[in-house]
Design a protein around this nucleic acid. Structure first.
Length: 576
RNA sequence: CGGGGUGUAGCUCAGUUUGGCUAGAGCGCAUGGUUCGGGACCAUGAGGCCGGGAGUUCAAAUCUCCCCACUCCGACCA
């Protein structure tokens, strides 16, 4: 393709709406344009990257035994009512009615549709296992779309569903997908970690997320630099870190005034103690019931851990007046001493806290020298806090790292949640009816594109991994008015095309500087420059975007050489 | 949903506080010329319901009210 005929609207300035670098660069380099909040058009270059990611995904899914289908975007409410999710999904679902006022939704995911398909078409164990997938738009009316392609309301997703005879089969399918996903993201040139994850609204009991490590990520992961332990911070194991401090002798309980001290920081600085000495008491409403949670003052609660422990579906902080009613004091002065008629759950560290400080359930006062067991009963303890960087890995003891990540894929073992709800069964060899055991596996295709930019860019623009670059090579004649240069450029362009290289020819009547700057911004992995030197010395400058390495090579036979080099890199760095 | 910010040319923004000439700049675009290996320069030109509606006023981009969109923080998603 010739750039003079292509739609590549680059921008010199950063659009005001874009906050994160992938959003800025994808807009500036002419890959995407916004249509509404969280809804984007993919321009020709953007579409090519999407296609390339999809191609890698298809290869890996097909090699793992997947079969591609296309499921409808518009889905009838009845199926969602069967699974029980029509109500559960809430406002995140785009809902609509047809001309007969029948309710539908735009598919946020496809468990219902695929389960309905399989229950009517699969009836024998001989038809299992089955792996079906599609690549298609998904619709989720996010309360707050942001960061361009990283959190959209319409986005491109690959979703695969596995159907097995039993748990054993599910584990195999899951393992296959785990490997396939690792291949996909490696081949896309991403640095990622597979982490243990919560199952959330999708349901099921076992899950991994594939996280691309990047500061723009909305999730946090804890991982071990030495062993393979890695988990979403929501569920990463957090063992008590204060066991060794028990040499301190419990002292006498003491009521102290703490006027105007409502936060952990205020109390700590007023009493001249470390936040680690404070017992933080939080009140939550879990499915409508009040519970209280005790945590060391410097720790952060994991909502997911608490929800899992309580087995509740809805969890939010209690309102201040609810807290006052049950504790007799406003938030900031509440504590476990004398708390009645409310369930109290402590984090694993709380029993080890000696001579702690806690709210006195009296406005303006805290207790000092509080000890669990002596001063209050702590019947329930559980792992409820977020793991911190630096604490020992729960598997091997090496200090954990904690980083932000972009979730580009997630795999779930669903079990029989949907097959039971929707009656998807098969007949086993003994003639008995059994529920099909399911798994589901998603890859955010458009999000992967943004994640690749987050990880691969510099001050000049995008640095596409060769495997997903919109084009592999740009040929830049320094002057398109120089007939000799253009003749060489044209023939090189032709030869590269003949060799099967994905190439564009920048034949625009622009100054060389403009072409170089835009080539860098767009991020073509390889640039071939034809200038006066080419005429005089017979060489063409070959420059890799990633390393900046530039070498002059004789232009005769260059196309074949470039093709070989591209093949090598694709094979060695991005191959299977 | 709560709180903040912003809506003026394709893009980035002045102008709004204190109402008043024909609404501006840079970039981009078109035409002509000079330039030509890292976003050149000169000249000319096109391009605006100043987010929308209602009001106040002799007069509204500017003041008031309502609505909408975008965006950030939080809640939600979990």
């Amino acid at each position: 393709m010739r750039t003079s005929q292509m739609l590549i609207p680059t921008l010199k300035e950063i659009p005001a709406e874009a906050e994160v670098v992938s959003h800025q660069l994808l807009l500036r380099a002419g890959f995407i344009r916004k249509v509404a909040a969280g809804i984007y058009t993919f321009l020709p270059l953007g579409q090519r990257v999407i296609s390339k990611i999809e191609k890698i995904v298809r290869e890996e899914m097909d090699l793992a035994g997947g079969q591609e289908v296309i499921l409808p975007i518009i889905q009838p409410a009845e199926l969602w009512q069967e699974s029980g999710r029509w109500e559960v999904y809430g406002e995140e679902m785009f809902r609509l009615r047809d001309r007969h006022h029948r309710p539908f939704c735009l598919g946020p995911t496809h468990e219902e549709i695929i389960t309905a398909l399989v229950r009517s078409e699969v009836s024998s164990y001989k038809q299992l296992p089955l792996l079906l997938y599609q690549i298609q738009n998904k619709y989720r009316d996010e309360p707050r779309p942001r960061f361009g392609l990283l959190r959209g309301r319409e986005f491109i997703m690959k979703d695969l569903y596995s159907f097995d005879r039993d748990e054993e089969g599910l584990k195999e399918s899951y393992a296959k997908m785990y490997r396939a996903y690792s291949n996909v993201f490696r081949r896309c040139g991403l640095r990622f970690r597979a982490v243990e994850a919560d199952t959330g609204a999708i349901g099921g009991n076992y899950s991994h997320e594939f996280m691309v490590l990047a500061d723009a990520g909305e999730a946090e992961v804890a991982f071990c630099p030495a062993c393979d332990y890695a988990a979403n911070i929501e569920i990463a194991l957090a063992r008590p870190q204060n066991k060794g401090r028990q040499e301190e002798i419990p002292a006498k309980l003491e009521l102290v005034p703490t006027p105007g001290c409502q936060t952990v920081e205020e109390v700590a600085s007023y009493l001249q103690i470390e936040p680690t000495k404070i017992i933080k008491t939080l009140f939550f409403k879990a499915d409508g019931r009040l519970v209280s949670v005790l945590l060391r003052g410097d720790r952060e609660l994991s909502h997911v851990k608490l929800m899992r422990y309580l087995g509740c579906r809805d969890l939010h902080l209690a309102a201040p007046d609810e807290v006052k009613e049950i504790a007799g004091a406003p938030t900031g002065y509440v504590g476990p001493l004398g708390l009645k008629s409310i369930r109290v759950i402590g984090d694993l560290e709380v029993p080890y806290m000696v001579n702690a400080v806690a709210g006195a359930n009296r406005e303006g006062y805290h207790y000092m020298n509080v000890n669990a067991g002596r001063d209050f009963e702590l019947a329930e303890v559980a792992d409820l806090r977020q793991a911190e960087a630096g604490e020992p890995c729960p598997r091997c003891g090496v200090p954990l790292e904690r980083k932000r990540g972009i979730e580009v894929g997630q795999i779930f073992q669903l079990g029989t949640k949907y097959s039971r709800a929707m009656g998807a069964t098969y007949t086993d060899p003994q003639g008995q009816e059994q529920y099909i055991v399911m798994g589901c596996y998603g890859i955010g295709i458009s999000r992967t594109m943004a994640a690749a930019v987050e990880q691969n860019h510099d001050a000049s623009g995008i640095i596409w991994p060769l495997s997903i670059a919109p084009y592999q090579v740009v040929v830049v004649p320094v002057s398109n008015r120089d007939g000799e240069q253009m003749a060489i450029a044209e023939s090189l362009y032709y030869e590269l095309q003949q060799a099967g290289v994905e190439v564009v020819l920048d034949d625009r009547d622009e100054r060389a500087g403009v072409k170089f700057v835009e080539a860098d911004l767009i991020g073509y992995p390889l640039r071939l420059t034809i200038g006066k030197k080419t005429i005089q010395e017979g060489t063409i400058d070959l420059k890799w975007r990633e390393s900046g390495r530039e070498i002059a090579l004789p232009w005769e036979g260059l196309a074949r050489r470039v093709k070989e080099e591209i093949e090598n890199v694709l094979k060695e760095r991005y191959g299977r």
